[in-house]
Nucleic acid binder design. Structure first.
Lengths: 196, 196
DNA sequence: ATGGACACGTGATAC
DNA sequence: TGTATCACGTGTCCA
């Protein structure tokens, strides 16, 4: 820098000829740096609000902060997945049969939710037998006399309706009380929590 | 830049005297810019992994990306809060009474989980009456014959034990089956979902 | 040509 | 001292 003769200031003996060009260049440079500062401020503002959201992130490097942010997002992702999984595995008060095929594979996700009764497992097995469907995974959760069964079944997509029919039959026979397992109180026994 | 005579190269006629200083300066400047580039790369790497985590963020500005990241974190935080709240408001199969005072305030969080029966509300009210405790909030969730009641009570901390005794008495009278509401099956009816 | 977004090199500063 | 980070101004490309 010290070796430059007139890097920024124009020589005194010529002013008018290139003065206009110099002025325009200086103005452009000024607005350019100002715009760049505004951009930096926007980024740093978001970084600052991220610091408030992440615990113990004061005194952290920018890169370290962002690293903890990615960890935080991934952790929350995992928690959400587990929460939704455990929620979907819990029986509700609503009798239902859900058939779900996805991923273009030959795996069918089936779930049934109904009142529990001793013979249910046997009936379920009998209902699935004629479909020649092999059960890949099974998860059964029972709470307070209600039962929720989630299956992953290897079967052709054409069997979806048959499967749904078979499971729905179990629902109906459950509601008729024909099993003699004992009729439970018919009053509403589920209230959604009052919000706040 | 063009006005500088020898901004980076030393003049040919003097080499030895300040050459050492110039070399050290050049080396320092090089390592400096290299270190700075490494720092930028680290930050941009985290930014890049954040882009993979946030949907539809491929064509986004850096500042816009970070903005969406803060939104994402806030949303997930809210979802986690609601999920944990709705989870804690669901009755489990375990009879329990929980008393919890926090925040150094005079608010006591109390919860009871037991079999449901018609007179439970009245018994609860009767149990709370002698404590002269005013109920600030009440949230009752009932599922499959089980009930979970969460209260926020304004009472002195000294009453915690009395409150716990009163609520535990309700648990015991529930277990004795003296209410004649009907004895439910004693076989285990709750299985935790098989992991994975 | 005008402004936006990015990477770069540099001075300042803290440990 | 060197070795980190940060903000700044600039060059450059793109719409």
């Amino acid at each position: 820098m010290e070796n430059c003769y007139w890097p920024h200031d124009a020589p005194p003996w010529l002013l008018s000829p290139a003065a206009a060009a110099d002025d325009r260049a200086a103005s452009a440079s000024r607005s350019h740096s100002e715009a760049e500062k505004r951009r930096r401020d926007r980024i740093n503002a978001q970084l600052s609000t991220l610091r408030k959201l992440i615990p113990k992130s004061e005194k952290m490097d920018k890169a370290a902060l962002l690293g903890h942010v990615v960890d935080h997002v991934k952790e929350q992702r995992q928690r959400a997945k587990e929460a939704s999984k455990s929620s979907s595995s819990m029986p509700s008060e609503i009798d239902e049969v859900i058939i779900d095929q996805h991923h273009e594979s030959e795996h069918i996700k089936a779930s049934i939710c109904c009142d529990d009764r001793p013979e249910l497992f046997a009936e379920l097995k009998a209902a699935l037998k004629p479909l020649e469907a092999t059960i890949l995974e099974a998860e059964v959760t029972s709470l307070g006399g209600r039962i929720k069964a989630n299956f992953i079944i290897s079967a052709a997509m054409a069997n979806q309706h048959t499967l749904k029919m078979a499971l729905t039959r179990l629902l109906i026979s459950s509601g008729s009380g024909s099993s003699g397992y004992g009729t439970r109180s018919k009053r509403q026994r589920f209230f959604y929590p009052t919000s706040r």
